[in-house]
Design a binder for these strands. Structure first.
Lengths: 135, 135
DNA sequence: CTACAGTCTGTAGTGACTACAGGGTCAAGA
DNA sequence: TCTTGACCCTGTAGTCACTACAGACTGTAG
């Protein structure tokens, strides 16, 4: 393997990704299949490392693999309008906002439930009661 | 089928659950297997309906099926201390709080990213740039 | 009697990995 | 040269909480 080539293990360490996950990204078509060495090892270059870093950063920001696929396709087409990128990001942000709203009202309900618990026996438990259907 | 017996479809409508989901809960051991009619249809009673309502309400509140299994076991044991119930609920609330915190900092990052987008061409796109690794 | 709604079992798909099993490859030290 | 051990390969199955189907059977209204 030449000086610029990276094994899958190097790529994994550099990007904080598990080896299995990298192979999974390849199978999912997110990361192009690299060249192979004589011993059939994957041989990556800088471009692969950059692409994987992109994927991981986008995953950290909660983008789905489908969205990342789209973002990668757009970022490969440097002349295209950035509006599509903007749309994906905004759609994702809206989703995140929805989740925050949902979780906040969830937390309020849990707070109410837990506040009422006198911690006696289950028969009098307000938590169980508030989960049970009124007859 | 007698007057008090319910088909799986009735149960589904009453609780807003899909028929497949009810069967899945049975297979998962959350809902006890009901009696069968001559034609091999599941025949539910009020107790099943109550139990399924409990499960659905707990699911709406985001409890995992494992947690619900535990809550159901506790609620069946009316004399036991309510502390275990309280612990499950608090653990779940803590998890929800963690998620809210994570999503909020995520949203901040997305806001920053999106604010910078001048919506020109992809080559100048700040969103793509902030996803790309610095070389 | 026929149409059709409802139910049955069993299997496979979802998303984004993760965890093996059972092998092969490679580099360093004895 | 041999061996050890780290690394890599493929392929499959597991996770969670469902959901969707295929292909068959049952029940009911007209």
């Amino acid at each position: 393997m030449n000086a610029h080539a990276l094994t899958i293990g190097h790529l994994a360490r550099e990007t904080g990704t598990k080896v299995e996950t990298i192979r999974f990204y390849e199978k999912s078509g997110l990361l192009p299949a690299p060249a192979r060495t004589e011993g059939n090892y994957r041989s990556y270059d800088r471009a692969h490392l950059n692409r994987l870093s992109f994927i991981r950063r986008a995953r950290d920001l909660g983008f789905s693999l489908d969205q990342i696929r789209d973002l990668l396709a757009l970022s490969d087409d440097r002349g295209q309008s950035c509006a599509a990128v903007d749309a994906i990001a905004k759609e994702h942000r809206a989703e995140v906002e929805r989740k925050i709203t949902d979780l906040r009202s969830l937390k309020k309900e849990l707070d109410r439930m837990i506040d009422q618990c006198g911690c006696g026996v289950v028969a009098d438990c307000r938590i169980i009661e508030s989960l049970s259907p009124r007859q």
